[in-house]
Design a protein around this nucleic acid. Structure first.
Lengths: 224, 224
DNA sequence: ACAGTATCGGGATTTTTTTATCGATAATGA
DNA sequence: TCATTATCGATAAAAAAATCCCGATACTGT
């Protein structure tokens, strides 16, 4: 096989927008399933969300699901396919750092369990919180984070600390084997290759809203 | 002037991705200003965020700012231009509905004041909360929402209620003159034309993270 | 059995967004 | 003064995403 050139394989990258729409469909599908429905078409889903059926079909296709013409998809299969694609059917262990009001809110949202996210504990510097529980999760001393994280081998770190602390926290957690961050601070982290980070930018979301409010109500469309 | 055709004006729509990046730049610019800097170039900003300078320049250009070759932009002007474009230099009055843990977290985040968002009060059904204050904002009885909102004439409604209540809350608030929603519930609202809604989809953000974790660390790039 | 139809899947087209290129401008330094 | 350089702004090209189109398939009703 010598002489072969680097494979010109068309590695079709999965489009991010599609991935981000999957959870929306997933929620709807589970609703339908719980109502006793067994099949659903792209047309039906698209109608629900004011989209085009083609886009829904393309989005779903990235999971590898195959449907049947004139019928649609089997709901149970489709749910499995999406959860499988997103990795939501296997638990990922996580710790949360910074048990302020935002941190507490995240700990209190039961919905995350559905995403396979298993937040096992949190860390904080506040002596009044250390030793207590927040929404059922123990609060540990921030100074022990390195040690405890080493033992637990968390896969994900959820950052809800003040912006100024974010980088240091990330560095420590990377040392313990954490390989992905869900970053709620407005800080761009400097990370080694292979470490993932997804930033939650609420101000970006609000920017879209407020800039559209400025342009006046007549010109604006409501997007997906 | 009779006989003229409908103007073939190329109404260049403002790209959403650009709008969403503006808050990131804004934060950096304020930092620089507070350090005493007076000018900044796209090259510098791009370097800070691991982007291309061309993209930064394009993003900034939507605000109408003009810079000087070999120098860059005057920071104070640029900050003004961005805030102006986003509408963040005029206060928008808002109310929050649903003072659970997420609602409280939002009320507790001082950063929103910088976005021109003025959350004046919140509404809840919990008798233990009604009459109290959360992070300095009064909690009113949910049953009085219509009446109180009518008086205050809120522009924005922040929805942190259970998903099942979202549509009804929205309907009531629309009746009182609210024209935009910042929707933290996983519900697609059915809204009349002219009413805006921006959804905060944390599960979409997590979907991106977890799906990339699944694909293995080697293939993945860290995006902006 | 067969026509009619809703839906899927793949490929083509269009639109949007990102990235590259280039001439013009203003500062710097010889 | 004049060449050099960093930067801007505009335009062009490329890449990504959304939308359109069409043949194939499987159900429905006659």
């Amino acid at each position: 096989m010598s002489g072969t050139i680097n494979p010109p394989i068309a590695i079709r990258a999965v489009p991010s927008p599609s991935v981000q729409r999957l959870p929306v469909y997933l929620r709807f599908l589970k609703e339908q399933r719980d109502r006793g429905e067994t099949v659903v078409s792209c047309t039906r889903i698209a109608e629900e969300f004011g989209q085009l059926s083609v886009q829904v079909r393309k989005d779903l296709s990235i999971t590898g699901i195959i449907g049947r013409p004139k019928v649609g998809y089997k709901i149970s299969e489709l749910i499995d396919a999406i959860e499988d694609f997103l990795g939501w059917n296997t638990k990922m262990s996580a710790c949360l750092v910074g048990a302020g009001s935002l941190g507490s809110a995240i700990l209190g949202y039961e919905g995350f369990a559905e995403l396979g996210l298993d937040i096992q504990c949190c860390f904080d510097t506040d002596p009044k919180k250390i030793g207590s529980q927040i929404h059922g999760r123990p609060v540990y001393d921030f100074r022990e984070m390195g040690k405890i994280a080493q033992q637990h081998r968390f896969e994900i770190g959820i950052l809800t600390v003040p912006a100024s602390a974010a980088q240091a926290v990330a560095n420590t957690l990377i040392g313990t084997g954490v390989r992905a961050f869900w970053n709620y601070t407005p800080t761009r982290l400097d990370l080694p290759a292979g470490i993932l980070c997804e930033e939650v930018k609420l101000s970006a979301s609000f920017a879209l809203l407020s800039s559209r409010m400025k342009s006046g109500p007549t010109l604006v469309e409501n997007d997906f």
